[in-house]
Design a protein around this nucleic acid. Sequence first.
DNA 1: AGTTGACCTTACTGTTACTGGAAGGTTTAT
DNA 2: ATAAACCTTCCAGTAACAGTAAGGTCAACT
Lengths: 137, 137
Amino acid sequence: MKSHIKANMKISQLAKTTNVASKTIRYYEEIGLLPEAYRNDNGYREYRASDIERLVFIRRCRELKIPLEQIKTLIAVQVDQKSSCQEVDALIAQQLEKVRTTIAELTMLEKTLHALATSCPNDKVGDCQILKNLQQE
Amino acid sequence: MKSHIKANMKISQLAKTTNVASKTIRYYEEIGLLPEAYRNDNGYREYRASDIERLVFIRRCRELKIPLEQIKTLIAVQVDQKSSCQEVDALIAQQLEKVRTTIAELTMLEKTLHALATSCPNDKVGDCQILKNLQQE
DNA sequence: AGTTGACCTTACTGTTACTGGAAGGTTTAT
DNA sequence: ATAAACCTTCCAGTAACAGTAAGGTCAACT
């Protein structure tokens, strides 16, 4: 059961509620991730409680580093309640794969940097081991 | 002992040798990471063997994800052989810290994504657990 | 009534480190 | 002679915003 309160609000209220900056909300609208907001007489955007949901959904996806373009896809799929959620599964799986790959890469990078960081006992640039190591092919 | 061959070359030769795209080399020159290249009569850039070193240095730094601005600093420090390499140490340590932080963040992300990926046994969007989880605050 | 401060609007720029492409000049090989 | 393979500069695009400017609106206080 949804709230019976019809709580219209301006952009900064929505921003506060969802923890998404006003600027970002406008940007999402601009690129079509959010539908064009209703404008009241003075031209201000006006939002209803239901707008909160979609924005929270987007924010959650962004926390998972899902690109905006893919969030668009997720939203599109969501609209058709009867469609298969295979696409959703695949997208999340793919995102997981990307994260794992990045972790693997960064772990190797960490090793290299750690080795480098502990390689120089000198204090003059002239014989700095770090710099010498960085010269190496 | 350096090579005694004075091997002048054009940009694509330098690119091949250092494994840095010609386009990228021009870009580095444009932002002042590389000095302005000597031009021969037809206006083509011409490089000597010694130019390879600096570019390899830059490439190695980039492999370590060191930002171009910081590479500028490293090169500047390098020039003065007598200066302390504290700055170099600090920069590498800082880079290591950044990588470690990112790994930690991504590891948490991986957990969340993994949990999410295995949360949906259905196949209709209407009751897709993944989407429901993404709605949650 | 006037003014301050806190909102709102659009539009433009900057960020990072390149990559792609257009339009045109040069060199090399056939 | 001509075509392929170079080279040049310049402009646009990428991802996801953040910063700033210039200006309109609204509520409260003096």
